[in-house]
Design a protein around this nucleic acid. Structure first.
Length: 271
DNA sequence: TTTTGACCCTGTAAGC
DNA sequence: TGCTTACAGGGTCAAA
């Protein structure tokens, strides 16, 4: 599923083609995604012009001329694809715009989320209100991350995937960031030393920015909005590399399960 | 209060 | 080949 780089890549592609466009027609084929879709969604979107695009954590935010904001989350398998043929399996929503552009929301597992809310109260929305640090913002640093990690007894890998602490880091980029920072994923979050937290904050930024440059990572489900694959999976240091030699020291990469999620790490480089 | 695990749903790949 | 099982990039909720 998309993590921050895939969501950012998707959002930028939408912005390039849809900024200033007006919703002409919306076809809704089912309303039971992760949560029920908002009431009368097609009617409320029709005629509205897109004023701006944004991203908060893994949510895409579409500000509309109707003073409402469309909040979109791709879940594990959601895609937003331009054009293409009608009648694709799992295409739950089809958006047609005034210039004939077509955008399709396709989500086999239906873990995706979509809501429409008043723009003035966006920050208080139940999906957004509790979210933590935005790792690509200037304010993000080792100092603020350390404050959020203070006292945490969970593993550092689990902690950096906790969206209340820092947003956008999912299972792939958590493993990759910890490798780059040289920190064991099982380290108790609150007891990682300050210098190492600084290194971790830098590593998270670096990994996410590189992944955005590469157009995200394509494993099973993700493709960019034009159908192209992301490329960052070619640069994975540990993710999906169980038993293969560490890129730094050649020690076999280990795979463990932490709170139900697979973690990959180098037992020698990460302490 | 904090942390963990089950669950939501479907597709794919591996194993038999 | 065909069936079964495990697993997959997220987020929420309830229980421990």
């Amino acid at each position: 599923m998309p993590e921050l780089p895939e969501v950012e890549t998707t959002m930028r592609a939408l912005e390039a083609r849809l900024l200033g466009r007006r919703f002409a027609q919306i076809v809704q084929r089912r309303d039971d995604l992760r949560f029920a879709l908002p009431e009368r969604l097609p009617e409320r979107l029709a005629g509205a012009t897109i004023q701006s695009f944004g991203r908060r954590a893994k949510y895409i935010l579409v500000e509309l001329s109707s003073n409402e904001t469309l909040i979109l989350h791709l879940g594990m398998s959601g895609r937003l694809l331009f054009d293409g043929d009608d009648g694709r399996k799992h295409e739950h929503l089809t958006f047609r715009f005034d210039d004939k552009t077509i955008l399709r929301f396709i989500d086999p597992r239906r873990f995706g989320m979509l809501d429409l809310t008043a723009s003035h109260s966006l920050a208080a929305h139940r999906w957004l209100a509790h979210l933590g640090l935005e790792p690509l913002n200037d304010e993000f640093s080792g100092r603020v991350l350390a404050l959020r990690l203070a006292g945490k007894q969970s593993a550092i890998k689990t902690a950096i995937m906790d969206q209340r602490i820092v947003v956008g880091v999912g299972n792939i980029y958590a493993s990759e960031s910890l490798f780059l920072a040289g920190i064991s994923p099982t380290h108790v979050a609150g007891s990682v030393g300050r210098k190492r937290v600084n290194k971790l904050a830098k590593a998270i930024r670096e990994v996410l920015l590189k992944a955005i440059d590469a157009g995200g990572s394509s494993l099973r489900d993700y493709v960019q909005s034009d159908g192209e694959l992301g490329n960052f999976q070619r640069f994975f240091s540990v993710y999906g590399r169980e038993e293969r030699p560490c890129v730094t020291c050649a020690t076999p990469v280990r795979r463990i399960v932490q709170t139900g999620r697979t973690t990959f790490f180098c037992p020698k480089c990460q302490r």
